[in-house]
Design a protein around this nucleic acid. Structure first.
Lengths: 234, 234
DNA sequence: GAGTGGTCTAGACCACATA
DNA sequence: ATGTGGTCTAGACCACTCG
């Protein structure tokens, strides 16, 4: 880890450990420099990182303050680290409904930038949060990037498998959302009724190289899904 | 404007003007340094800014590439600059249903960190996107921060009024979302039926000082609201 | 190995907030 | 006026990618 990353972790941890409230003032830049024995730019970089994550905000001429402060029970859409929900806070489990290799259809080809006749893994999962049904997730992974996938992996976190075992360097994601009524099939899977409201989310996730490796369509149970976004004005 | 901001604008504009596609490689850091006659850190800062905005991605050892690429018709939840929707792309108009000064109730007091007996402006607006009904928005602004508001201002962009006339320095926002069925009253306003799906969004917007100045509850019309989020893995 | 972006330093100077 | 964070420089060195 780089110096600035270590410093960022240290500060974030100390906010967490001391349960500092929103608005609490942190030590100034100079004392952080001395404390960690690094140059000003390194402290600045560490603080910028924490600001991006939504942990602090900085005000020129005034100081550095704790931001954080989320309501209970909401899942962050752009989690602190990684897009998958905070697995520590919430107990999320997955039941694999289907897993197979298949040829990509047009929609999948377009979203994953695939050529003709390329194969993908198709995974359909029912995900639960603390035993409540959270969503149905249908995912596609190109075989050329994800050469192997099985039920055991899909029951856990596929993203953890990709980063840990396959050393994927996940970089960014495009997320599209809309609301609509449930159709008959999805309603049954979610144990709801046809016509009930649902949030439909599509995401394309990219490697650091810019290659898309995951296209997923997720249908959320309207009673058990609450989302949280920390926006910053760039 | 700072040097790095000007450089960031220039690069972003050139991507836009040349309609560069995702994955297009940009000039390397050294040539950008020479071209703008600045040091490496300044270029780095400019590129970091663009990366935060989702306009580019950088890959060590390889280059700088164009990211951008959004589907048509989706409103960005964390717009390029500012949280209010891209007003240039979409024609958003507001009809003021109600505007009055009142005492804050408990919910408003909590979200805006107000003391007992503080007054707020209450604004209820029906917002349209290209003549379709987009949402009902109910907003609260503390009078101590927003001493004046009228119908004419509320028919336009309140945020523009706050930043331009009152010189507000808007810094960040917390956004909470959930899905549910419409009640009778909201359904009528949105010209929908009771029980239809809706996205409910609550936002608290903060100044650079960390003071909250806006608490809004927004109910979106499910047929005319599509959202887009660009996530980055910090 | 050549080329690319990323980190880090030491120090000068600037812009803003607050009392 | 003082203190605080923000910008910028010049240059050294590091880490990754790719042919």
């Amino acid at each position: 880890m780089n110096k600035y990353e270590i410093i960022a972790e240290t500060i974030q941890q100390s906010i967490y450990d001391q349960k500092l409230e929103q608005g609490t003032k942190l030590p100034n830049v100079e004392s952080l420099m001395k404390q960690h024995n690094v140059s000003k730019s390194t402290i600045t970089k560490a603080l910028d990182t924490l600001e991006k994550r939504g942990a602090i905000f900085q005000q020129r001429g005034s100081g550095i303050f704790v931001r954080r402060q989320r309501r209970e029970g909401y899942v962050s859409l752009l989690t602190n680290r990684g897009f998958t929900a905070d697995l520590k806070e919430f107990n999320i489990t997955s039941e694999v409904l289907k897993l197979e290799r298949m040829n990509a259809d047009d929609e999948v080809k377009m979203n994953l930038h695939l050529e003709e006749n390329e194969e993908v893994y198709y995974v359909e999962r029912l995900r639960r949060i603390d035993n409540d049904i959270l969503c149905i997730e249908v995912s596609y992974f190109p075989v050329k990037l994800v050469p192997y996938l099985n039920n055991e992996i899909a029951e856990g976190s596929i993203f953890n498998y990709l980063t840990d075992a396959l050393k994927f360097n996940i970089s960014f994601a495009d997320i599209y959302m809309h609301i609509d009524e449930l159709n008959d099939i999805d309603a049954k899977k979610l144990e709801l009724k046809q016509g009930n409201p649902a949030l439909f989310l599509e995401q394309v996730v990219y490697l650091a190289t810019g290659e898309p490796f995951d296209f997923s369509k997720i249908t959320y149970h309207y009673k058990h899904s609450k989302f949280f976004v920390q926006a910053t004005n760039y």
